[in-house]
Write a protein that binds this DNA or RNA. Structure first.
Lengths: 210, 210
DNA sequence: AGATTAATTGACCGACAGGTTAGGCATCCC
DNA sequence: GGGATGCCTAACCTGTCGGTCAATTAATCT
């Protein structure tokens, strides 16, 4: 890569970073290209050299924000039992949203707004969402077969409920000021709800997972 | 009221109605005063006669939208026991958000913005929110004293968890297409989680509340 | 070195935003 | 009836928006 190209790449990155920040906290229509230019310490015209229109810039931001969302948790921790894997999955979700709070916030705001842009987005988000839930369903199903989990509910219902509870934690975190999420209490809650017997015997649910 | 005054009231209402519709579907910054004027079939200047600024119009819309939110569930169903009251409270929440989906959506979108506008709003919403939770805390506390509820958690923790779960249901409802909320399953879930013993003895949790 | 091409800019444009002004009709009060 | 007041509008003002353009700088190619 020539020095010229890398220089262009740098300015492109600066622009994307600035736009990301502004779009996330102020929204699409409330953010002007001049603001982006100022925050990126670049001329407005340069933005239009990198990105044809404001929408194109927005979509570029969207894609960049989505990158960290594609992770496979399947590989990790094969040797743990179903209960521990389930709890780890719960922890993963909460840590992820508290690490990526600003982009989660951003996506939520988009999803709540016009369907125009969010249609393309919501499809991707939904895919992540349902694959996450599918993993939970499978884990809970296996746990039940092994007798680890004594809930009377079907794995699907239980997983839906857990996901709902996690989403609830998410919006509590986003809206109700409060500091960072504390996954431990949520994990314990799920542990008690799903694996009550085992939990009483071995209550170190939170730590066993860290 | 003179015919003149009622005429003014009518036009004011028309403006509020139009603004409500546009703000809700397009957001604050994406809606222009000219659009509001067109939809309300009045001149733009008239809007500025009724409301000093765009923000003032917005706040008026906000307050009108908030009206149905002020309801006291304290009066209803005094004769029910704590378990039934708790479940009824859960049902109330879910029915409310599914009835007022569009304005809930609207408020959520506003809360996500870091604007001055939402500060006045978020205070009110937060007040509703915490008073709702306080009711849950108190009910669960009383239920525990009476031995109806055997969870090891403190009433505060349990209430927080329930509220989170409800919020999770809310966002599931708002985002994941699915039809109307079915409160029954959520109620049963809470019932089983909080009043497990009682629930097994008298599983008609959902129906007893309707 | 000179010509080409990529990266970057300040100045500029029409469109439209929120908001104002001057005035036209009613209606009300005396 | 006649001025004051309330309701309403067309036309206007000013600033900012997304976007363009001609020109400038700096690296690359031959």
């Amino acid at each position: 890569m020539s020095s010229q190209e890398s220089q262009a790449q740098d300015s492109r990155d600066e622009i994307l970073k600035a736009a990301m920040h502004l779009f996330a906290n102020r929204g699409f229509h409330e953010t002007s290209m001049s603001e982006v230019a100022r925050e990126a310490r670049v001329s407005k015209a340069l933005i239009f050299w990198h990105f044809k229109t404001k929408e194109e810039l927005f979509l570029a931001v969207l894609n960049r924000l989505l990158e960290p969302y594609f992770i496979d948790f399947a590989e990790e921790s094969q040797q743990l039992d179903e209960r521990q894997q389930t709890l780890k999955l719960v922890e993963f979700y909460l840590l992820f949203v508290s690490d990526n709070a600003s982009s989660v916030r951003f996506f939520l705001a988009q999803l709540l707004r016009e369907q125009k842009i969010s249609d393309a987005l919501s499809e991707q988000v939904m895919k992540l969402y349902s694959s996450y839930r599918a993993m939970l369903v499978e884990l809970i199903g296996r746990a039940r077969e092994k007798g680890l989990c004594e809930t009377g509910l079907s794995p699907e219902t239980a997983a839906s409920f857990i996901v709902s509870a996690l989403n609830g934690q998410l919006i509590e975190f986003l809206f109700m000021g409060g500091g960072a999420i504390n996954p431990q209490s949520a994990i314990e809650m799920v542990d008690e709800w799903l694996f009550r017997e085992t939990h009483k015997r071995n209550p170190a649910g939170g730590k066993a997972v860290a």
